[in-house]
Amino acid sequence: MRQVGKRVTSADVAQEAGVSRTTVSFVLNDRPGHAIPEETRQRVLEAARRLKYRPHASARALAAGHSDVVLLALPDMPVGAGISRFCEEVATALADRGLTLIAHFARADDQSLQDVCAAVDASAVIGLDAFEQTTVQALHSVGVKVVIPSGGHAPSMRHVGQVQAEHLIGRGHRHLGYAMSTHAGHLPMARHRLQGAADACAAASLEPPVVIGVDLEIAAAEQAVRQWASQSVTGVCGFNDDTALAVLAGAREAGVRVPQDLAVVGADDVPTAALSLPPLTTVSFDLGEAGRHRAETVASALAGHILVSDGVPVAPELIVRSSS
């Protein structure tokens, strides 16, 4: 009798099905080149289901030639609704392919990325930012088979700011502002988005946006709105929806009407964007497609196929609401 609380093993499955452990291995690992009668195969599968057998990670790795762990390297920045949704989509898409996602949050006092990968036996690493070549080499040295950086991250982020600014310019706004995040972890992404807004202004022969850092506090946002008003700014691009929502709150405190006196556009389409007063115009992404693309790329690379592209095709889409 199997001991209660003991992990179910392939030997237990073999005993339950009345076959050898070798037969169980052939069936559960779906190894080609072995003629297992269909009746025997079904008996093994039914025994495994009945016992709720889960192969040990090391056994799965041995059979597949790599572990099923994929590590997502997240930069040192607040994890908002957008990144959370992306993580969920990647995790779901990877799970459909028999892979498990682990998220690693970078901090100054954390273990190095390669140490974490070695500890969890990661077979692949996905990045939100591009990796230095030395980092890629270090990851490969600890057994990581596939390293997939963001690929095209900067152009995509510039496109966000461009879409925001072009919308405001198309609505007749000739002097724009940019609500910059004050969190250091946001700055690399924010600078790319700001550059996109500046490019759109330059293409329309306008001055670049007036940049003001906006804390997520009403008093700070009100002060920023008053500064923009003093400089005749009539349209503001927010780094993200949280920043743009702060601008809306600041405008209410300053007595500035939105969108009559000041139009506001955010980015990332967080759930609360549609619930603000007025509802916030924003830039949305198909994170489901992005997650599926990453998962397909990882699975393909682990199967030994050549990587054609490591980029994530995320096309920004403008969601027009009452704030602009």
Rank of each mutant, 00 (worst) to 15 (best):
residue 167 H to I: 11
residue 167 H to V: 11
residue 170 G to E: 09
residue 170 G to D: 11
residue 170 G to H: 08
residue 172 G to Y: 02
residue 174 R to S: 12
residue 175 H to G: 08
residue 175 H to P: 09
residue 176 L to S: 05
residue 176 L to C: 07
residue 176 L to P: 00
residue 177 G to D: 08
residue 177 G to S: 11
residue 177 G to W: 14
residue 178 Y to G: 13
residue 178 Y to C: 10
residue 178 Y to N: 09
residue 179 A to G: 15
residue 179 A to H: 13
residue 180 M to L: 15
residue 180 M to Q: 14
residue 181 S to T: 13
residue 181 S to I: 04
residue 183 H to L: 14
residue 184 A to E: 15
residue 188 P to G: 06
residue 190 A to M: 07
residue 191 R to Q: 13
residue 192 H to Y: 10
residue 193 R to H: 07
residue 199 D to K: 00
residue 199 D to L: 05
residue 200 A to F: 06
residue 200 A to V: 06
residue 201 C to I: 01
residue 201 C to L: 02
residue 201 C to F: 02
residue 202 A to Y: 01
residue 205 S to D: 15
residue 206 L to C: 02
residue 206 L to S: 04
residue 206 L to R: 10
residue 207 E to A: 13
residue 208 P to E: 14
residue 209 P to Y: 01
residue 209 P to V: 00
residue 211 V to M: 12
residue 211 V to S: 10
residue 212 I to R: 13
residue 212 I to L: 15
residue 213 G to A: 08
residue 214 V to E: 08
residue 215 D to R: 13
residue 217 E to R: 09
residue 217 E to S: 14
residue 217 E to L: 10
residue 217 E to M: 08
residue 218 I to V: 15
residue 219 A to R: 14
residue 219 A to Q: 15
residue 220 A to Q: 11
residue 221 A to E: 05
residue 222 E to D: 05
residue 222 E to V: 06
residue 224 A to E: 07
residue 224 A to D: 09
residue 224 A to M: 05
residue 228 W to N: 10
residue 229 A to F: 00
residue 229 A to N: 04
residue 229 A to M: 14
residue 230 S to T: 14
residue 230 S to G: 12
residue 230 S to N: 12
residue 231 Q to T: 12
residue 231 Q to S: 11
residue 232 S to G: 08
residue 232 S to Y: 00
residue 233 V to D: 07
residue 233 V to W: 00
residue 234 T to Y: 02
residue 234 T to L: 04
residue 236 V to K: 07
residue 236 V to I: 14
residue 237 C to F: 12
residue 237 C to G: 06
residue 238 G to T: 04
residue 238 G to N: 04
residue 241 D to A: 03
residue 242 D to P: 05
residue 242 D to N: 10
residue 246 A to T: 11
residue 247 V to M: 04
residue 248 L to F: 12
residue 248 L to M: 10
residue 251 A to F: 10
residue 251 A to H: 12
residue 251 A to I: 01
residue 251 A to E: 05
residue 252 R to M: 03
residue 253 E to W: 01
residue 254 A to Y: 03
residue 255 G to V: 13
residue 255 G to D: 10
residue 255 G to N: 08
residue 256 V to N: 02
residue 257 R to L: 12
residue 257 R to K: 13
residue 258 V to L: 02
residue 258 V to I: 14
residue 261 D to S: 12
residue 261 D to G: 06
residue 261 D to L: 06
residue 264 V to Y: 03
residue 265 V to S: 03
residue 265 V to E: 03
residue 266 G to C: 06
residue 267 A to R: 04
residue 267 A to T: 09
residue 269 D to C: 05
residue 269 D to V: 00
residue 269 D to M: 01
residue 270 V to Y: 00
residue 271 P to K: 07
residue 271 P to G: 01
residue 272 T to F: 11
residue 273 A to G: 07
residue 274 A to D: 10
residue 275 L to K: 05
residue 275 L to H: 14
residue 275 L to Q: 13
residue 275 L to N: 08
